[in-house]
């Protein structure tokens, strides 16, 4: 009895392991709907850092547009959503994707959740982390076209030797604690997540359009 139970658990592990890897490689929904335009709605913030969504919003347009998509201007998007009473990201993320076809004429909508946005101190070294989850949905069918997850980390300290070095680093960490610049990390994460082999196949404004399937 115990053995069958154990076997079942092991089998379940295998099954779930398989399904996630297969999901990552499945681009059939994406290719079936091949969006040209993407609207990025305000990010859902699961952290305590209040500036995270706006820093994120500043760095999302270029990476996505450089993949070849028409990206609706994030600032205008935010204004228009607020104009019709949609100012809560939590509320916006609950809307049916078709709403963004009606409102913007967008082929797809990108929902982003900020999972981590923090600076951690371990002894005299610090590490800055940003971590996001991305989901692209088709506005006509509501289908999920692509999902991604990206973490970017910058570590500092722990390199220089000697007591003087330690003191300098401690002061350095204390100063940077007040003004941590998350922008480069947000930019880095947003660039990496759309690249092959797990990212977004390129869109119509990229010369590689429709010829990059082999990279995914």
């Amino acid at each position: 009895m115990k053995k069958t139970f154990l076997g079942l658990i092991v089998a379940m592990f295998f099954v779930s392991g398989c399904s996630t890897t297969m999901q990552k490689k499945d681009y059939s929904a994406f290719y079936a709907h091949s969006p040209r335009s993407i609207v990025v709605v305000p990010a859902l913030n699961n952290t305590t850092e209040i500036n995270a969504p706006s820093v994120f919003a500043s760095t999302i347009t270029a990476p996505l547009a450089e993949r070849g998509y028409y990206v609706f201007p994030v600032y205008l998007t935010d204004i228009l959503l607020k104009d019709i009473g949609l100012s809560e990201a939590g509320h916006i993320h609950q809307l049916p994707p078709s709403r963004f076809l009606d409102l913007f004429g967008a082929d797809a909508v990108l929902f982003v959740t900020i999972v981590d946005w923090s600076t951690k101190y371990i002894l005299i070294s610090s590490s800055v982390v940003v971590h996001m989850k991305y989901e692209l949905k088709d506005t006509r069918t509501g289908l999920s076209l692509w999902q991604g997850e990206q973490r970017a980390v910058r570590s500092s300290g722990g390199g220089a030797g000697g007591v003087a070095g330690l003191i300098v680093m401690a002061i350095d960490a204390a100063i940077t604690a007040m003004v941590v610049d998350y922008m480069p990390l947000a930019r880095q994460a947003n660039q990496q997540v759309f690249l092959p082999s797990k990212g977004l196949p390129v869109g119509p404004y990229n010369p590689e359009y429709k010829t990059d399937q082999s990279k995914f």
Binding site: N51, S54, V55, A57, S58, T59, T61, A62, A65, E66, G68, V74, Y75, M183, R187, Y205, N206
Partner: peptide
């Protein structure tokens, strides 16, 4: 090579938003 010229666009959004 970049598809578009970005200049200070990122800064412009963070000026307004952040």
């Amino acid at each position: 090579k970049s598809l578009f010229y970005w200049g200070d666009y990122e800064t412009s959004i963070s000026d307004r938003w952040v």
